[in-house]
């Protein structure tokens, strides 16, 4: 999905940037900390296309068991969540 604002201020990554800390580090990045995610035990869950929700082995919706705001850190299909999925923004 796009937004006009995002289009107006493209933030594409330049090539040839490395991932090491440099002497050019912005002031605000000095205060980076590792977040404490709140994982959900989803090992026995699957998406039920009929109910359109995540369910546990017996078909009961996870939402009836676990409450919102407790997202897993890594999606099963390998995509990475945004911070808002890790933190209760």
């Amino acid at each position: 999905m796009s937004t006009a604002v995002t289009d107006a201020f493209p933030l594409g990554r330049d090539e040839n940037r490395n991932d090491q800390v440099t002497e050019w580090r912005p002031f605000g990045m000095r205060y980076g900390v590792q977040p404490t995610p709140i994982p959900v035990p989803l090992s026995d869950t699957k998406y039920d296309p009929d109910q359109q929700v995540l369910v546990v082995a017996d078909g009961q919706p996870c939402a009836k068991i676990e409450r919102a705001g407790t997202m897993r850190v890594t999606y099963p299909d390998g995509q990475k969540p945004g911070q808002s999925d890790v933190e209760k923004d």
Binding site: D19, V21, F27, G28, M29, Y31, G32, V33, Q34, P35, G82, Q83, S84, V86, E87, D89
Partner: peptide, 18 residues
Amino acid sequence: YKPLSAPSWLENGDTYVV
């Protein structure tokens, strides 16, 4: 100090937020 966005980044395999 407050970041203007909700920045998160990956360095050396670890995720950081501010």
